[in-house]
Amino acid sequence: MNRLVTAAITASLALSGAAQAEVLTIEGMAPAHSPEFAEIGSLSIERFGGSDGRALAFELEDRLSAVNIHDEPYFVVIGGRSAVQPDATLSGNVTAGVEEYETTAKRRRCVERNDKGKCVTHKNIKVDCLTRIIDYRAQVRATRYSDGRSLYAESFPDKQEQTICFGDDEDFASSESVIRNMVSQTAGAVRNDLAPREYRQDIRILESRKGMSKVEGNFFKAAIRMTKSDPVEACRMWDEAAGNGQVHISLTFNRGLCAEQRGDLETALMLYEEADRLAPGKSEVTQSLRRVSDHRRASEEWELRRSATS
Rank of each mutant, 00 (worst) to 15 (best):
N2R: 06
V5S: 08
V5G: 03
A7I: 02
A8Y: 08
I9S: 04
T10F: 07
L15D: 11
M29E: 15
H33E: 14
H33G: 13
E39M: 12
L56R: 03
D62N: 11
R63Q: 06
L64W: 00
N68P: 03
I69F: 01
H70Y: 10
A83I: 07
V84S: 13
A88N: 11
A88V: 04
V94R: 01
A96M: 04
T104C: 09
A105K: 07
R107Q: 15
R107N: 10
R113F: 08
C119H: 05
V120C: 07
K126G: 08
L130R: 03
L130V: 12
A138D: 00
G148Y: 11
L151A: 06
A153V: 10
S155F: 01
Q162M: 05
E170F: 02
E170S: 06
A173K: 08
A187G: 01
N192P: 04
A195W: 04
E198V: 00
K210R: 13
G211S: 05
M212V: 01
K214R: 12
A223L: 12
I224H: 14
R225C: 02
E233K: 13
A234L: 08
C235S: 13
R236T: 07
A241C: 10
G243N: 11
H248M: 08
H248R: 15
I249L: 13
F253K: 15
R255A: 01
G256S: 01
G263V: 08
D264P: 04
E266F: 10
L269W: 07
L271E: 10
L271H: 11
Y272V: 05
E273M: 09
A275F: 06
A279H: 09
G281L: 04
K282M: 12
S283T: 11
V285P: 06
R291A: 00
L304Q: 15
R306Y: 09
S307H: 12
S307V: 14
A308R: 15
T309V: 13
